[in-house]
Design a protein around this nucleic acid. Structure first.
Lengths: 336, 336
DNA sequence: CTGTTAGCGCATTCAG
DNA sequence: CTGAATGCGCTAACAG
């Protein structure tokens, strides 16, 4: 009648339509619109549901998930807390983890803590959301701190700083390390060096002790312990040190990246990737160790099982007792 | 009086205290508590402010940032949309990007789109939050779609699918490619092969054309174009193909990972990392090309400048015109 | 099945 | 400077 065609009965299209706009356009109440738009099956007549969906479509309506969470008490948001993501091992883990979390219908808020001095401001400013769950890789906090920080009991500790109150998953590093050292012993190794990462980490300390115990059990003499920081560069430096003195029969590194550095520095000992005088063992079982240039024998856990365990906690299907341990395994390659 | 000690005037501590609990405990109204807890300077008497802060401390109050966003219209949340994060190049970019975004006081929702069939459900179910801004690396959507998806005009397109309405930053690939090809020509290269990634990407198509043009300009004959998928494995396969026929003087790969595969397959051509018959050029300037085993000449942009440009858009200090282009540069290493 | 009402937690009017 | 009232967008509980 007024010459505006199809829209003659409708108000002008709002830029950011809310459910009220949808309801109004469909000629129903907000509650009906809400039910019609719900993922679940809610009581709505077929005819009104169609009208609502049509109106939502026309308006380009997108629900404000944050507003929804206010009443449902569930934000469908999971915090993943890391120190940083520049380790090569991160690449192999985060992608499948991200995919798996999203497959549960939740989104990931990725929080990089970085150096520990940031933790202070973190705690002070409370730059943390009330998330459904937090997955803590970073060793910046213990379980209790993480729980208060995220206002959630669903705090999944993967950094070794767990307690009895929160779920935790940790690799059982013993199995793989014992296997690797036994493998070396079977090759006639009598002396060994260990290249370690940051000893401030609880997990790293435990790992070093496992190497020491396994070496002792096999009667292999530990001739040197060099400290690195998990990086390629620090492995290179360790290789430099090792090149100076009499070479041990085997070198065990607590990260593949360091083993890569050692290998590159001692490359003449590994013509064609095969050891002559010195055997080399890494840790993490990076996909990079499948590259021709770095055929490093390594220790790793099943990442798929690890991710599955994490998702199990998130979805509530895993029930403990905690910590849940996942076995590591030794993977022989050319260097070992 | 009632024997409960310090808490005799207080209600029992709630598990998840709200600002109302804080206000009650401090003996003030919610509004005063809100002002006292605000980051900004709001009118509150010093005495009441102290009481409120004390009460908040005692209760372990953390503001619900999501609820706050309902009224402030700002969630301090940025969506970062990626296809996946298992490319080696991602490692060098995401960590500094994440750190920079968080330094602005915002948090990152990392959204992995993965295969394109997920995009459908993505658009349909609208499982996306109303974020302040979206940083789109993934080529899953164009600018208009991204804007409606995230209910934000602050959609930063980095996938080449930008339009005039949204900010965009893209590397100027021409400069680096021209430099690399000129470098090859100066070494006496007369024939070349190109190993490409997925031709469905707008950016990749443009990149291939740039190689073709640069080669033609230098009078280098393009003898083969092999298609890969940016991965090491696909580079290895390309190397296999190239090993069959007469070797070209140079091989240009559109990713460093593919160049690494080619290098490993053709390693005898590169004793000590130096080319004999064939020169090799990668793309991305990965930190891995600084490892001894992969000294690949490459093309890359300044990641710090790239991140700075992204942050500039986020904070509103960059104003266009769009797209903003960032020059790439050639980095000579042993293979080139 | 439907519509009305009452909150979720918070910031922001606007009177005092 | 303070506090009561209002509303952000949405869903749950309740009557019809």
């Amino acid at each position: 009648m007024d010459g505006h065609g199809m829209d003659r009965h409708h108000a002008p299209l709002p830029a950011n339509p809310t459910i009220s706009d949808v309801a109004e356009r469909a000629g129903v109440s907000r509650a009906v619109a809400s039910r019609a738009l719900s993922d679940e099956q809610r009581p709505v007549s077929a005819e009104k549901k169609a009208r609502v969906l049509q109106a939502a479509q026309e308006l380009g309506f997108r629900p404000n998930l944050l507003a929804r969470s206010l009443t449902t008490k569930s934000v469908n948001l999971v915090a993943v807390v890391v120190n940083h993501i520049h380790d090569l091992s991160d690449l192999d883990l985060f992608d499948p983890l991200l995919a798996a979390v999203q497959a549960t219908g939740k989104q990931v808020i990725l929080i990089r803590v970085g150096s520990s001095d940031r933790v202070e401001s973190f705690l002070r400013t409370g730059v943390a959301y009330h998330v459904d769950a937090a997955i803590v890789f970073s060793d910046f906090a213990d379980a209790a701190t993480a729980r208060t920080l995220f206002r959630s009991d669903q705090v999944l500790m993967l950094n070794g700083r767990h307690d009895h109150a929160s779920p935790a998953v940790i690799p059982d590093e013993r199995v793989g390390i014992v296997e690797a050292v036994a493998h070396a012993a079977a090759q006639g190794v009598k002396t060994a060096a260990v290249v370690t990462g940051r000893p401030t980490s609880v997990l790293e300390q435990a790992r070093i002790r496992l190497y020491q115990a396994a070496l002792a059990a096999e009667g292999i003499r530990l001739t040197a312990t060099l400290q690195g920081d998990y990086s390629y560069a620090s492995g290179h430096r360790a290789g430099e040190e090792l090149a100076k003195a009499a070479r041990p029969d085997a070198i065990f590194c607590t990260s593949d990246a360091m083993a890569m550095g050692v290998l590159d520095r001692l490359r003449p000992d590994f013509p064609g990737g095969r050891p002559t005088t010195t055997r080399l063992y890494g840790y993490d079982n990076l996909s990079l160790t499948d590259f021709d240039a770095y055929p490093i024998s390594s220790i790793g856990y099943d990442r798929r099982a690890y991710v599955d365990a994490i998702i199990g906690v998130l979805t509530g299907t895993a029930t403990g007792p905690w910590p849940l341990t996942l076995p590591t395994r030794f993977h022989a390659r050319l260097t070992g």
